[in-house]
C-alpha cells in the first residue's frame, strides 16, 4: 500500500488554510492535529511563523524559492517544487533517519502560505543563483 501520510498532511494543511481564510485563526483542534502529524516540528514551525521568518523569493525569470530564518538567526533555503531544506535537521532527520516528513522550516513555509504570512522578496536572477546554491570560498 502506498504512503498515506503525505495526503493526510496535505489535507490538514488545506484545512488550516480554509479555516484561516474564513476565521483569521486556527482552531485548537487543527493545532493539535498539526502536532500529532508532524510532532515537535510543528511547534517550532509555528514559532517560525509567529516570527514571520518565511520569505518567498522570486526573480524576474519566474524562478522562486523560499528562505526561512531559523531560530538561530541562520538563513535556510528551501525549494518551492520539492521538499528540500538546507538545514542539517532536514538531511539528518528527514533524509537519513526518516523520522520526520518535513523539517520545521518547510512546515513553516506551508503554514505561512496557508495563512498568507510570507514576506515577499524579489531578487535578481543572479542573486537567485546564489540563493539556490551559495558560493563558498
Amino acid at each position: 500500500m502506498d504512503a498515506i501520510l503525505p495526503t493526510v498532511a496535505e489535507e490538514l494543511l488545506r484545512e488550516i488554510k480554509r479555516n484561516y481564510q474564513e476565521t483569521s485563526q486556527i482552531t485548537d483542534e487543527l493545532l493539535l492535529g498539526l502536532k500529532f502529524i508532524f510532532g515537535p516540528t510543528a511547534l517550532y514551525a509555528l514559532d517560525l511563523v509567529d516570527q514571520r521568518s518565511v520569505s518567498h523569493v522570486t526573480s524576474p525569470s519566474g524562478r522562486s524559492t523560499f528562505q526561512v530564518v531559523g531560530s538561530s538567526g541562520k538563513m535556510y533555503t528551501c525549494f518551492a517544487s520539492c521538499h528540500y531544506c538546507s538545514c542539517p535537521a532536514f538531511s539528518f532527520s528527514v533524509l537519513r533517519k526518516n523520522d520526520n516528513m518535513l523539517c520545521k522550516h518547510i512546515l513553516a513555509i506551508y503554514l505561512s502560505q496557508a495563512m498568507g504570512l510570507c514576506q515577499e522578496l524579489t531578487v535578481t536572477d543572479k542573486q537567485m543563483c546564489d540563493i539556490l546554491f551559495p558560493k563558498e570560498d
Binding site: 504512503a3 501520510l5 503525505p6 498532511a9 496535505e10 489535507e11 494543511l13 488545506r14 484545512e15 488554510k17 480554509r18 518551492a80 517544487s81 520539492c82 521538499h83 528540500y84 528527514v94 533524509l95 526518516n98 516528513m101 506551508y110 502560505q113 496557508a114
Partner: peptide, 16 residues
Amino acid sequence: LPLSIMFKINETCHEH
C-alpha cells in the same frame, strides 16, 4: 516517503 511531492494547499474543490 518521497520528497519530490509538494503539498498543494491551494485547491479548494474538495470539502473535507
